[in-house]
Structures are given as C-alpha cells and as structure tokens.
Design a protein around this nucleic acid. Structure first.
Lengths: 209, 209
DNA sequence: ACAGTAATACCTCAATTGAGGGATTTGAAC
DNA sequence: GTTCAAATCCCTCAATTGAGGTATTACTGT
C-alpha cells in the first residue's frame, strides 16, 4: 500500500513540484498539501497520513508549532522537517517538539524519497550536517574552569548540587564544617551568585558538575 | 587520496574481513587494525587515520573508553562505532565520549562504506534505529504530575529552581512570603526531599520544571 | 448541604546559611 | 627566600529556612 503523505509548505511552486513528483510514483500518495499549519490538527486527524513533510518558515503558525500539532493529533504520523534552516536553535526546537527527521532543502529528490521510506521503517533521516550537529550536542562542552574553580571547590559544588547541606558535605569530604563554609563563600562570587540555591541552579543548568 | 582507516575489533575473522574488503577498494586504506584499545592513543598519533572503526565489547579497555582515547589524541579522526549493542546506556556513553557515527553490525558492507565516506564529509552516519533513539532522546518525557504538584506549587518550584528566595518568589507571584513558605512545605514531601536545595536538584535533574 | 482540595496567610522555634572577619599550613613559582 | 594560591579551620551576627502548628476563603464533586 502506498505511503500516505501530507505536505506543509508555503512556497506554492515547490509544494506543487513535490506533490507532482511523489504522485508520479506508485509507492507514494500525497493525500493533502497546505500552505500553512492552521488546520494541521484537523487535517492530520482527517487524513491519517503516514508521513508529514513540514517546512519551518510559513506565514501564521510556523513549522515548529506545526510539528507539535501533528504529533499531538496523531503520534504515529512521522514528521520530517524540510527546511533551509541549519541553526541549532530551530533544529533543537523541532526535535523537542517531536520531529522524526530533518532534511535541508538542498537534499536531492532521490534522497528525499529514501528518507520517506526510512522514516516509515522507524528510522530518523537527517541531512549529514544536521546529524553531525545532533551528535555534537551530546559532547558536553566541558566548561573547563570557565569560573576558575579549584579542585576542592568543584568537589564541594558537586556535592552541593546533590542537595547536600554544608554539614553533610563536610562528612563526605572528611573536612570540617567551617572549611566547607569557607569554600562555599569562595565559590559564590566565582559563579556570580549570592547563595547556595542559585549556585545549584547555575551548576546544574550549565552542566558545570 | 585514499581514506586512512584504523580498526579496533577483537573478533579476528571480522577484523580481517573488514580489512580485506576495504583494502580491495582504492578509495579506502586500512592503515592499522587492533584487537583492543590498549594502544589506541599512540597508534592514533602515529598513523594519523581519517576514520576509526570501533567495536564496543573488547577485552581490556572497551570501545567507549577507546572513543575518548582516539578523540583526545586526535580530534580530527572521525570515530564510527561498529557494534551489536543497541541499548541507550552504551549508545549515549559513546556519543558523550565523542563518537561521530554509530552503526549496528547488521549493517550491510555497502552501507558501511557509504558511512565512512559520509563521516569524512562531515556527516554522522547512524543505523536507522539508532538515529531514532537519538532523536527520541530530545522529546522531554513530560513527567506529567509524577509528583502530584498543583499548578501553584509548580510555579513556586519553577521560581525556586532559578535560585530565588522565598521573599523574591512571593514578589514574583504577588502573594505573601508566608504563603510561599506554606507551598514549599507542601512541595517537599511530594518530591520526597527535605529542603529547598534538594528540591532544586531534583527538579532540574528530572526536568520537572 | 457537605467533604475535599487548592490557595491564601500567620505564628513560633531551632537550625542552617550568608556576610564579615581572621588565621595556619603546604607546595609550587619566581 | 619570598610570594602566592589552595586548603584548612575558627568566630560572630543577621537573615533565611525547615518543622510544627492554625485558620480562612473559594471552588468542585457528591
């Protein structure tokens, strides 16, 4: 049975070309094509597509919103972003919204067709440069001494970030309670914070520990 | 010029097959092959490979350690994991260690060759099921009310997690200082913690906020 | 009408923390 | 040989917090 495809793309010529190309092959069936995401929820529910091709830059609701609408309406529909944007900001917003693939518009048609098959088979097609960005995001950029913390200060901060009190930290490190407080007093200005709670928030959200 | 490849794989038959296959094509050159990662640092420095094929399950230092050794010795060398393991644990350890690709051993040889070209061109080849896992990891599994927090309690926790004091939170929400303290006292048992610092640690590390 | 929950607000007391000091020892750098 | 940073320890005082309460209002579901 043909793969049911729905297209969200505001460029009419491109949208028509894609539709024409995909319809010319028995393997694919374009069941709907739209210049924006306003009706994304209802058409997804009505047409039950296997795959949605989604542009990002569209008038009204953009494609990032669109991913969420399609995914919420019908999680089984695989969403492939199809866009010119290559920046981390939009990329990760789409991924968090539930996109199953991310292709740049420079992708040649045969690769696009292959990606549609791949996403239906449970894959996650991505343009090479996108895949590289995604993998790079896992390498925690060790903020190596961005705040010039000493070895001991880092240890204290790590334990603090587990929610431990000064007394418990002292026990863990086998040093005195007052020493821990001294370290904390030295840590705060280095992190540009004023109290332990801010320090924890900063340490955890900036992956210092 | 041929792509310089180094192979870490403890299965001798597989290692020899790969070497033989790759050497049969002028495009590729296997400059070294090893049954473990003990010498990974020194051979990477000595042989200056473009690509390292890395198994995970090897005697001695395993492949996860191996990725780190190769990447630390020579960041330009692209490392492709080549393994049977499909579990999130090992996968994300490899990605954090700096792997540039992740192929399952069931990958057919022609896809493996394509992956080597792709990684040299700055891509990040992944088996489809791996790519899907990676993308899924971005969908923050909304821990929807795992701890049964009320709307207001969630708001208080969100502000607390920015490091705000009770007094500041009261100001932000336009409620009294004592009310904030009441909410906090109700939040702690729900999160199974005993103080604000533990609450922040839990909220941030479990993505509650 | 009544029970339950969420949200609001106040009180007290002991413990912890932040802020401000000062002080010693050790090992590396110049 | 002196200087410097890191690590250790102690003191005080005011502010914040945790823990234990109590109490009112408003809305929801029965």
């Amino acid at each position: 049975m043909a793969i049911r495809i729905i297209i969200f793309e505001d460029n009419e010529r491109l949208r028509n070309s894609l539709t024409y190309l995909l319809r010319s092959m028995p393997e694919y069936d374009v069941v709907g094509d739209y210049p924006n995401c306003r009706e994304a929820t209802s058409v997804t529910l009505a047409l039950q597509p296997d795959v949605a091709l989604m542009d990002i830059d569209m008038p009204g609701e953009n494609g990032i919103k669109g991913v969420g609408m399609v995914k919420e309406a019908r999680p089984e529909t695989a969403v492939i972003m199809y866009t010119v944007f290559e920046d981390d900001e939009k990329l990760f917003q789409c991924l968090c919204a539930g996109a199953n693939g991310y292709l740049l518009k420079k992708t040649p048609p045969d690769k696009l067709f292959e990606a549609i098959r791949e996403v239906v088979d449970g894959g996650a097609p991505m343009s090479p440069s996108i895949a590289r960005r995604v993998l790079n995001s896992f390498q925690q950029s060790k903020t190596e001494n961005k705040y010039q913390l000493s070895t001991r200060e880092l240890e204290v901060l790590q334990l603090l970030s587990k929610g431990f009190s000064a007394k418990v930290i002292a026990g863990e490190l086998n040093i005195s309670f007052e020493t821990v407080r001294s370290h904390l007093k030295n840590i705060y200005p280095k992190l540009h914070v004023n109290c332990g709670k801010e320090a924890i928030a900063k340490a955890l959200s900036e992956r210092i520990v």
